[in-house]
């Protein structure tokens, strides 16, 4: 495993750090959405979780600016909102990628090498768990049991289930997406040329 020496392990978790900062334009949209959601709730601490859930439903994740806005509205320190958002697994702080990989780390998958599949994704995409690639094409997540342990280790690619995932299969999955993107880009290019 990465970051493990014989006796010490270093905690590497980038998933709860804002790696991808939204652009100014995005920020405005985020703040608009959050203001609208806040309008529907009493700004009371007991409503904090449902508000965060609403924001995540709307935006797909909890951006830093959204959390700061909510904290200001509730008159609590922003770090408390951050603490809550990092406490629950249901919240994500980075935008989901166009394609999401959910690597199962349930008991069965873990025993037959779910962590190997996870490490392959991490290596190939150069991101950590809970992260999104800088081009926002892919995001990587850990899940616990998707209910098909007989074909472990399992990876859920968007909504498709991939069974018996080896590092070679990981390469295959990524290659398929690269091909798709390539074709799309080519098509776009062609259309562009036709347009000219």
């Amino acid at each position: 495993m990465q970051g493990v020496t014989k006796r010490h392990y270093v905690i590497i978790s980038k998933g709860d750090v804002f790696v991808l900062k939204p652009s100014e334009n995005e920020k405005e949209i985020i703040i608009e959405h959050v203001a609208e959601i806040l309008g529907g709730w009493r700004a009371d601490r007991e409503n904090l979780i449902p508000i965060l859930q609403d924001v995540q439903d709307r935006l797909g994740y909890l951006p830093g600016v959204a959390m700061e806005k909510i904290a200001t509205a509730m008159d609590i320190p922003a770090v408390d909102v951050f603490g809550l958002a990092t406490f629950y697994n249901q919240f994500r702080l980075n935008p989901p990628g166009d394609h999401q990989f959910k690597v199962c780390m349930g008991t069965a998958c873990y025993m037959v090498g779910g962590n190997i599949a996870m490490d392959s994704f991490k290596r190939r995409l150069s991101i950590g768990e809970g992260d999104t690639t800088p081009d926002r094409k892919f995001s990587l997540e850990r899940v616990v049991c998707v209910g098909c342990c007989s074909i472990a280790p399992v990876v859920v690619v968007d909504d498709m289930i991939e069974g018996k995932v080896t590092p070679t299969r990981v390469d295959g999955i990524l290659l398929a997406f690269e091909d798709k993107h390539q074709k799309k880009d080519d098509n776009k290019g062609n259309q562009g040329q036709e347009g000219v």
Binding site: I11, S13, D16, V17, F18, G64, M67, E68, I76, P77, A78, V79, D80, V81, F82, G83, T86, F87, Y88
Partner: peptide, 21 residues
């Protein structure tokens, strides 16, 4: 009354940190 530090994460990963780490 500053609100610079707080708890984040859960379980063994729990730590005292700032907003956005």
């Amino acid at each position: 009354k500053v609100g610079a530090i707080g708890f984040a994460r859960r379980g063994l990963k729990r730590m005292v940190t700032t907003f956005g780490n």
